[in-house]
Simulated scan of single mutants.
Amino acid sequence: MRYTQPGKPMQNGYVERFNRFFREDILDAYYFNDIYQMREKVWEWTEDYNNNHPHSSMGNKSPRDFKPRFSKELKFFAESG
């Protein structure tokens, strides 16, 4: 396992980008009354991010839209291998 050097966050750019999205969309957007309210918002955000949010690594498609195409490609490689 490799650790990022202090003061060099771009050595792990994917995590830093995720942290920025999470901070902007959840922590900076709401005031929470208790931990349960925060957990609910985090759960809703996680479901949206993992299912509906477009990702550039998937051709700006959401994981839900990308999955059928990915499943077909995996099936093709499994049958040809």
Rank of each mutant, 00 (worst) to 15 (best):
F22W: 08
Y49W: 07
T46L: 10
R2P: 10
F76E: 11
S62V: 05
Q5K: 04
E47T: 07
K67G: 02
M38D: 00
E73W: 13
I26V: 15
R64P: 01
M1S: 06
Y49A: 04
S56E: 13
D25A: 14
V15L: 13
P54D: 05
V42M: 13
H55A: 07
E47F: 04
N33H: 07
P6L: 02
D65H: 07
E40G: 06
W43M: 05
R39D: 13
F77Y: 15
H55V: 01
R64Q: 14
Q11S: 10
G13Y: 03
W45D: 06
W43P: 00
Q37V: 11
R17K: 09
N51L: 07
P6I: 05
F18S: 07
G7E: 04
P68F: 06
Y31T: 15
S71T: 08
D34M: 04
D28M: 11
D34C: 13
P68H: 06
R39V: 08
M58T: 02
K75F: 13
S62P: 05
G7N: 10
Y49N: 00
R20G: 15
H53L: 09
H55K: 03
S71M: 09
D65S: 12
N50M: 05
N19W: 12
P6T: 08
E40V: 02
K8L: 04
F32D: 05
E47D: 13
K67E: 12
H55W: 15
L27G: 00
R23D: 07
S71Q: 10
N33L: 12
Y30D: 12
H55D: 06
Y31Q: 15
D65Q: 11
